[in-house]
Design a binder for these strands. Structure first.
Length: 692
DNA sequence: GCAAGGTC
């Protein structure tokens, strides 16, 4: 059967790949004025199909909008916020997006079959459906097929072209659900907040106080951490430190770590002293290793950017996108942390061996040091991990930060293809009176990947002298030392990204935007840790000096007490950016919490979001209630329902109705208690009440 | 002139 086929791809990388792998040879490209419309034409003779052209389409075509929203806009008044839960919605197509649809429509007239090559995820399925409707408008009898692919390797593309699938309408429906819920809630709450709260303070005049299902939970994380820092009360603790000099000074750490009761520490200390000598009870020596990093995902790139390169996540993504379109790196939006078996890693490494800084290292990998990268547990079935695809010299990139991001991606890639670092660890345990102590020594034997990956540190500690089992010795010094727990730091960008990721707030491509949004809205500001705020200092209480390392700077394992919530943040430098909520951001979160919880319980008993204590944690909440408007539970619940739609266990109509109903309750409660919200804003923004 | 999702 001879049929002309129209290919529609979601982005140039896919269009190029299918052109190359499926064409008989000659490919011509035709660019139009529109950045989204780019046609690749080629002859094609494959599996009974004969093809002519492939069209590139990017992005969603239509935007959902509430009917007459624009017309109603003047003054924001004529359409009440609550109407936005009910008003009919329609799809609007912007002019540049219309060009995409027109192009598909026109090309469909010359084809008998349509092959849809959008990303193989939910959103891709939805875009595929938009492509289908555009094509059907041009040719009502066109056969519609969908390609399923997880990378753009030749063999894989060919196999995907042979084995065609149908569009999965359940996934399309799930996305339509998400779009409608996001639009209605965003529009309704934003209008409500803006209309109700802006008049409260002159500072808010003319501002937009937006609500979004992603920006609010993101703000919630920042506020929650802020409040915990603010309410932190330092506690004094005591511990016994033991030193012994045998050639070198060895410090033994107390197995109890530390206690918060001075009297008990004193009693234990007296018993130790009375025993006079200590006995070696155990000697452990074993090899140890530090694992090479996993292949790079978008989320990791963003975290690494702000942590090690000091470039904020939005800028990192912008740079990565440019590096991608210029052909230096692979597609930068990916959740995949495992390389496909088919990929030729060696040829990618080879391209790097000309570099002055890491060229020799790359050559070393080719000469026998190469190791197959570790495989992580994520695969988005659409893109490989981020890796360099071509070499570019530092000077050839247009700016310094682009060169640093490229360098990071290359080094990370080479590190993935390297061996783990190897070392040797020894631990000596001793008994001293009734108490036990231990000392550690680490000897790094082979740095391996660390040679090319300077972002991580793993260094030898001072070596322990020789000890024999059961030998006794008299400690050189035994002391009681006191220290104080320190408050956790304000949330940093890598921590915020990790929290959003763990709680399903936003996607790899959008998390940076949500963070930028809450800055733009003046809900949060960033400042350098230990430094001063860029524009607006937090109002009450003052600077936080962080006497880190007072007492012993390692803590937290002492059962029962977890006051010291120091977080592991990689190599510490004093320039980490941290997020501080503004008075407005705090007022919004606090205001909703108070207003929505007042019906059945006093505000003071509302549990705080303690799970943000650790850098990454998933929040579990059995039955979400409307008091968690600013918390991730509702978004999570929606995600679960979308999954149910994909699996045929639920429908769009039911989920939209249910979800809107849930929020409508929150909405009407917020309306009833609007005075509480106003009070909160007044209190925070005007600083009328400085009590926290 | 309100969301979040996709992409240049």
């Amino acid at each position: 059967m001879v049929r002309k086929v129209l290919f529609v791809a979601e982005k140039p990388a896919i269009a190029k790949a299918i052109s190359q792998h499926l064409s008989g040879g000659q490919i011509t490209t035709r660019n139009t004025g529109n950045q989204y419309v780019k046609n690749y034409c080629f002859d094609f003779d494959f599996g009974g199909y004969w093809g002519r052209s492939s069209v590139v389409v990017t992005s969603v075509i239509g935007h959902l909008t509430v009917t007459d929203f624009d017309a109603e806009y003047r003054g924001w008044g004529s359409c009440s916020p609550s109407d936005l839960f009910e008003l009919p919605i329609r799809t609007r197509v912007d002019s540049d997006k219309k060009a995409i649809a027109d192009n598909i429509k026109k090309e469909a007239q010359y084809a008998q079959s349509l092959f849809i090559w959008t990303d193989c995820d939910r959103e891709g399925e939805f875009i595929g459906d938009e492509v289908r409707s555009a094509a059907v408008q041009g040719n009502s009898r066109i056969e519609v097929k969908r390609a399923k692919f997880s990378n753009t390797e030749r063999a894989h593309i060919i196999q995907a072209a042979r084995r065609q699938h149908e569009l999965d309408m359940r996934q399309v429906e799930a996305v339509a659900t998400r779009i409608e819920v996001d639009l209605r809630l965003g529009a309704a709450f934003t209008r409500f907040q803006t209309l109700a709260l802006c008049p409260v303070a002159p500072a808010l005049d003319g501002k937009v106080i937006s609500y979004g299902s992603c920006q609010f939970p993101a703000l919630g994380f920042v506020v929650d951490r802020y409040l915990r820092v603010r309410s932190f009360v330092p506690e004094t603790f005591w511990y016994i430190r033991l030193q012994y000099t045998r050639g070198v000074d060895v410090t033994f750490h107390w197995s109890r770590n530390r206690l918060f009761d001075r009297a008990i520490v004193t009693i234990l200390f007296e018993k130790c002293i009375a025993a006079k000598s200590a006995t070696v009870t155990n000697i452990q020596q074993k090899s140890t290793s530090k694992w090479r990093p996993l292949p790079l995902t978008t989320v990791e790139l963003q975290k690494a950017g702000s942590r090690w390169l000091r470039i904020d996540s939005q800028r990192v993504m912008k740079i990565a996108e440019e590096l991608y379109t210029q052909g230096w790196i692979s597609y930068p939006r990916t959740e995949t942390d495992q390389f496909d078996k088919g990929i030729n890693l060696r040829s990618l490494i080879e391209k790097q061996n000309q570099d002055q800084n890491w060229g020799n290292y790359a050559q070393g990998l080719l000469n026998g040091n190469f190791q197959q990268p570790r495989a992580g547990s994520h695969n988005d079935q659409a893109h490989p991990p981020i890796h360099p695809v071509n070499y570019v010299a530092r000077g050839a990139l247009d700016n310094y930060d682009a060169a640093r991001v490229y360098e990071f991606i290359v080094r990370r890639f080479l590190a993935c293809c390297s061996d783990d670092a190897r070392g040797f660890k020894s631990t000596v345990s001793i008994a001293y009176g009734p108490e036990s102590f231990h000392a550690n020594g680490l000897l790094v034997l082979e740095k391996n990947y660390l040679d090319v990956y300077p972002y991580e540190k793993w260094e030898s500690s001072q070596q322990l002298p020789e000890f024999r089992l059961n030998e006794t010795f008299e400690p050189t010094e035994a002391k009681i030392i006191d220290g104080q727990t320190t408050a956790p730091g304000y949330l940093t960008e890598p921590e915020l990204i990790a929290l959003m990721d763990a709680n399903g707030i936003g996607t790899d491509a959008t998390m940076a935007e949500h963070i930028a949004k809450i800055k733009e809205r003046s809900y949060v500001v960033t400042r350098s840790r230990g430094g001063t705020t860029n524009n607006q200092p937090p109002t009450r209480g003052a600077t936080r000096g962080r006497p880190r390392g007072r007492g012993r700077g390692r803590g937290g394992q002492n059962g029962g007490h977890s006051h010291d919530t120091e977080t592991e943040n990689g190599p510490r430098s004093n320039t980490v950016e941290e997020f501080v909520p503004t008075t407005l951001g705090t007022a919004l979160i606090q205001g909703y919490e108070t207003a929505l919880s007042q019906t059945d319980r006093p505000a003071s008993t509302v549990p705080s979001l303690s799970s943000t204590a650790s850098t990454v944690s998933t929040l579990n909440h059995a039955s979400p209630d409307i008091t968690s408007l600013a918390k991730p539970f509702l978004r999570k619940e929606l995600e679960a329902k979308l999954k149910a739609i994909c699996e045929g266990r639920n429908t769009k109509a039911v989920v939209v109705a249910e979800t809107l109903e849930q929020y409508r309750r929150a909405f009407s409660l917020a309306n009833q208690k609007v005075a509480v919200l106003k009070d909160a804003v007044r209190e925070y923004v005007l600083g009328e009440n400085r009590r926290l």
